[in-house]
Amino acid sequence: MLTVDFDRLGVVEGSSVIDVGCGAGRHSFEAFRRGADVVAFDQDAAELNNVDAILQAMQDQGEAPASAKAEAVKGDALDLPYGDGAFDFVIASEILEHVPQDDRAIAELVRVLKPGGRLAVTVPRWLPEKVCWLLSDEYHANEGGHIRIYHADQLRDKITARGLRFDHQHHAHALHAPFWWLKCAVGVDKPDHPAVTAYHRMLVWDMMSRPWLTRHAESVLNPLIGKSVALYFEKPAA
């Protein structure tokens, strides 16, 4: 389930990509599949072990071009261990809402991006996220949880203040917003609640089968209740 639109971002074979806060690796896998040289970057060693195993399996099974390279790297998003302008593309999906020093993280994302390169940032959208916070403290008030809710224009301004040029915004995962509202309403510590499990089965079916009806419904609902907002930027070449 991708939040970043890779066609819009423009990742191509031979480009260099860092996926900062890669989590389970979904965007790293897609970049690798498209032939990019990928760094899957996160601070969670256990998660990175799984990501590395999948990247290796993709390579072994020919699911990425032979010329592409990928590695999983543990580190701190506030101090990326790369030189200025090291990457053609930088992805930061669903991480900034977790970071107390988000301005410092944004500065690092911009620093390692090449002039002429592109940055994609996604965060939970204000309205769906606000509903979750109102329904449940447990949803966000936990170690490593969400510490802020962004307005899209607020985040856009933080990034353009670093010299990047904003060029597109879209919303994603509208069908997931009601799922999280439901989890928050019944208790996030109750994953086996019948309503939650039923909705989860529907989401899995949708992701695996991608039927026309739910794809169309989500495209219509995304501007209204899309769970995430994705913002795209370019670093001026000069």
Score class of each variant (00 low, 15 high):
residue 8 R to L: 15
residue 167 D to A: 10
residue 139 Y to S: 05
residue 55 L to G: 03
residue 49 N to S: 12
residue 45 A to S: 11
residue 195 A to G: 11
residue 205 W to Y: 15
residue 42 D to W: 11
residue 95 I to D: 01
residue 161 A to C: 02
residue 235 K to G: 12
residue 194 P to A: 04
residue 127 L to A: 14
residue 122 T to C: 10
residue 75 G to I: 07
residue 103 D to K: 14
residue 108 E to M: 07
residue 24 A to G: 10
residue 34 R to T: 10
residue 178 P to R: 01
residue 30 E to Y: 00
residue 29 F to M: 00
residue 68 A to E: 06
residue 222 N to S: 05
residue 209 S to M: 14
residue 106 I to R: 08
residue 15 S to D: 13
residue 99 V to P: 01
residue 84 D to L: 04
residue 193 H to V: 03
residue 5 D to N: 12
residue 196 V to Y: 12
residue 195 A to L: 14
residue 72 A to S: 11
residue 29 F to A: 10
residue 210 R to C: 07
residue 201 R to P: 00
residue 77 A to C: 15
residue 59 Q to H: 13
residue 202 M to D: 12
residue 38 V to R: 01
residue 126 W to F: 15
residue 168 H to W: 11
residue 47 E to G: 10
residue 127 L to F: 15
residue 68 A to R: 09
residue 99 V to K: 10
residue 98 H to I: 07
residue 26 R to L: 13
residue 216 H to G: 06
residue 149 I to D: 08
residue 203 L to K: 07
residue 128 P to V: 03
residue 135 L to F: 02
residue 96 L to W: 07
residue 66 A to D: 14
residue 119 L to T: 04
residue 162 R to I: 02
residue 208 M to D: 13
residue 14 G to W: 00
residue 238 A to C: 09
residue 202 M to Y: 11
residue 114 K to G: 11
residue 184 C to Y: 07
residue 210 R to V: 08
residue 138 E to R: 11
residue 2 L to N: 13
residue 199 Y to W: 12
residue 93 S to I: 03
residue 172 A to K: 12
residue 166 F to Y: 14
residue 166 F to S: 05
residue 219 S to F: 10
residue 68 A to W: 00
residue 159 I to D: 00
residue 151 H to R: 13
residue 44 D to G: 02
residue 182 L to R: 06
residue 229 V to C: 04
residue 162 R to E: 14
residue 92 A to Y: 06
residue 44 D to N: 15
residue 56 Q to T: 15
residue 10 G to F: 09
residue 46 A to H: 06
residue 11 V to D: 06
residue 16 S to H: 08
residue 175 L to N: 03
residue 123 V to A: 09
residue 157 D to T: 09
residue 23 G to M: 09
residue 168 H to P: 02
residue 185 A to T: 11
residue 87 F to Y: 07
residue 110 V to F: 09
residue 5 D to E: 06
residue 124 P to K: 03
residue 208 M to P: 01
residue 216 H to K: 13
residue 24 A to S: 14
residue 7 D to I: 00
residue 179 F to I: 09
residue 170 H to D: 15
residue 59 Q to M: 10
residue 228 S to K: 00
residue 32 F to H: 10
residue 158 K to N: 06
residue 113 L to S: 03
residue 62 G to E: 06
residue 42 D to S: 09
residue 224 L to D: 01
residue 168 H to A: 15
residue 42 D to T: 03
residue 26 R to Y: 11
residue 126 W to Q: 12
residue 81 P to M: 12
residue 80 L to P: 02
residue 53 A to E: 12
residue 50 N to G: 15
residue 99 V to S: 04
residue 96 L to T: 04
residue 11 V to K: 03
residue 98 H to G: 02
residue 52 D to S: 14
residue 50 N to W: 04
residue 148 R to Q: 02
residue 224 L to E: 06
residue 153 D to A: 08
residue 181 W to P: 04
residue 106 I to G: 09
residue 8 R to E: 09
residue 96 L to R: 05
residue 74 K to W: 07
residue 79 D to K: 15
residue 207 M to E: 13
residue 72 A to L: 06
residue 66 A to F: 04
residue 30 E to L: 05
